[in-house]
């Protein structure tokens, strides 16, 4: 027997707080293979391949620039509109992609999950990780435009990169945590109520308008700003922009609130998801 000996106990109704961390560690290879699968399979048999990662935010930013800046004339803190939108779309794109994919992770993989056991958390985790690749490509695209505007256009004086740029990886981590937390909540709820499957697309769309992507937080009246800050994504997007341009809104108090909320959603999401995953194959 020795160290290889172990015992699996199967019993109903373990505590809400029980999460199979040991199992998760054992399946870490599966995590990486799923990341790879996601990445490889998404763009196999497409002509443009990973170029799609670049095209999506590029075209969206272009359309936003035409519609919102040229058409409706929403201010952009004095920044070139295209760059302004692009900057917001990079973290938002990552967040919304992760949110949509993780929220469907249980129902989309029901055929596998009904036949074999592995810690179900592996799937949403793999989604959040594999989306990093797309995000990096988008970030690089954004940076090339950023440098172009900084060095080759008259807008260069408006673009003031600063030490808050160092916060960038941290803000991405927070976006990942937030999307994972929300995604897990919705995935768990979708198991019982399919309504959430339809709701999540709509919700993401609404959420984008509640996040300062097509407008700067500075246009929100002072007395309503706390409301906007209740949205953790607002702080992430605004912080992102602040690092690159030196304009916008960054407040340690607001950020602490948003980070606290992120942690709350993540922890509660993991627990709820974990609660549901134990018997979800019976209902799905």
């Amino acid at each position: 027997m020795g160290k290889d000996y172990y015992e699996v106990v199967i019993q109903p109704n373990r505590s809400w707080l029980y999460v199979d961390w040991k199992g998760l560690l054992h399946y870490r290879d599966l995590l990486w293979l799923l990341v790879r699968r996601d990445f490889v399979s998404k763009y196999k048999q497409t002509i443009l391949g990973p170029l799609w990662f670049f095209l999506q935010p590029f075209l969206t930013a272009l359309i936003f620039a035409l519609v919102f800046a040229r058409g409706i004339k929403i201010p952009t803190d004095g920044l070139p509109p295209f760059l302004f939108y692009f900057c917001g779309l990079v973290p938002w794109g990552y967040f919304s992609q992760c949110l949509l994919a993780t929220s469907q992770s249980l129902s989309a993989n029901a055929h596998i999950l009904g036949k074999v056991y592995f810690p179900r958390l592996v799937i949403p985790l793999s989604i959040v990780i594999s989306n990093v690749a797309a995000m990096v490509i988008q970030l690089v695209t954004f940076l090339s435009f950023y440098f172009y505007f900084k060095f080759f256009t008259p807008a260069s004086s408006l673009i003031q990169p600063n030490e808050f740029l160092l916060l960038l990886p941290f803000l991405f981590l927070q976006a990942a945590m937030l999307s994972l937390g929300f995604g897990l909540w919705i995935a768990a709820l979708t198991v019982k109520y399919r309504d959430f499957q339809h709701l999540v697309g709509f919700l993401t769309q609404l959420w984008m308008y509640a996040t300062p992507i097509i407008y700067p937080l500075s246009v929100v009246p002072e007395r309503l700003r706390w409301l906007a800050v209740l949205n953790p994504m607002a702080v992430i997007v605004e912080g992102f922009r602040y690092g690159f341009f030196g304009v916008g809104f960054l407040d340690v108090g607001y950020w602490a609130v948003s980070f606290g909320m992120t942690c709350f959603f993540l922890v509660s999401g993991v627990l709820v998801f974990n609660r549901v995953e134990r018997t979800f194959v019976d209902t799905i």
């Binding site: 172990y6 019993q11 074999v116 056991y117």
Partner: peptide
């Protein structure tokens, strides 16, 4: 399915004393 941890039992207990693999499909 219960023994391979895909779903939980409503009541009862089971012990598996060794590494488990299942070929359900």
């Amino acid at each position: 399915k219960i023994l391979s941890k895909i779903t939980e039992p409503a009541s009862g207990l089971a012990f598996l004393r060794g590494r488990v693999s299942s070929l359900l499909e």
